[in-house]
């Protein structure tokens, strides 16, 4: 049996709830945009329902604490194929056992969740580091990103704490949405194909100067005697270069 849900987190939790209600273990849980119909497959379409998803979340937290619900939410954002069943397994295991199974690293699937969570953590940390704001003529600081995982929901607070006094935008060009801040934080999306690059003419002249200065600085701190490009690329993987001022051409 395949459970098909609407690709939201609440949808996934509703699916887990549904499995308890129907007393069945699904073979797969798949987001509708990834679902491919097959002839012999029995499909259950999940209704996303906040009361259901909340009950799953609360139930899990009662057993294993907030840390556990945090863990599965963050892992969900990894968008990894099969992540739904890992989360499903974890919730079932948590409910079945008296003790808190969160740290049962002997359980392979639980260990896997922790490992994915670690990757998420690394990506969040990378975004804290690699966001580059550019000042546009309308007075906003804008940054385009292209993270491996869907970490936009996890990075807002860091930047709010740091830059509360001006307006800024961080936009995920792959997933086509972002966070906008002006006194408060909100999600924002634009139409198709917008905001892949920031055209030079929308930037202030000071912006161009500081970008030049930053590039000069980056060149100046290099120590040729110690050059180690392998290490460099390990820390700053090439797929991030596109939006890094110091690594982009021109």
């Amino acid at each position: 049996m395949t459970f098909v849900y609407d690709a939201t987190y609440e949808g996934l939790l509703s699916a887990i709830f549904e499995s308890y209600r129907l007393q069945t273990i699904p073979l797969r849980i798949v987001a509708e945009d990834k679902h491919q119909k097959s002839l012999f497959d029995q499909v259950v379409t999940i209704n996303t329902d906040d009361t259901y998803s909340n009950r799953v979340k609360k139930g899990l937290e009662k057993k294993c604490g907030k840390q556990a619900s945090n863990l599965i939410y963050r892992c969900f954002l990894s968008e990894k194929p099969g992540i739904e069943m890992l989360i499903f397994h974890f919730v079932r295991t948590a409910m079945k056992h008296e003790e808190n199974v969160l740290q049962n690293y002997r359980d392979e699937q639980i260990l896997q969740l922790h490992q994915i969570n670690k990757q998420i953590g690394r990506e969040v940390h990378r975004m804290h580091a690699f966001v580059r704001f550019q000042e546009t003529k309308d007075g906003m600081m804008t940054s385009l990103i292209n993270p491996d995982f869907n970490v936009i929901p996890l990075i807002g607070k860091h930047f709010v704490d740091r830059y509360p006094a001006f307006e800024w935008l961080i936009y995920d060009t792959k997933r086509r949405y972002g966070i906008h801040y002006k006194d408060s934080l909100s999600f924002i999306t634009f139409g198709e194909n917008q905001h892949r690059y920031l055209a030079g003419e929308v930037l202030t002249s000071a912006e161009n100067q500081y970008q030049q200065l930053w590039k000069s600085y980056f060149r100046a701190v290099d120590i040729p005697e110690r050059r180690n490009l392998k290490l460099h690329v390990q820390h700053v993987p090439k797929r991030y270069w596109k939006y890094l001022i110091e690594k982009s051409e021109a």
Partner: peptide, 30 residues
């Protein structure tokens, strides 16, 4: 901690914003 009208904070974590071509962390304007 930052203030409402201030700029920046120190989180105690340390962030390398980029790395030199010899693999050293660039965290501060040095």
């Amino acid at each position: 901690k930052n203030t409402k009208d201030g700029l920046g904070n120190a989180t105690g974590m340390g962030i390398c914003h980029t790395y030199t071509q010899d693999g050293r962390c660039v965290s501060l304007l040095k």
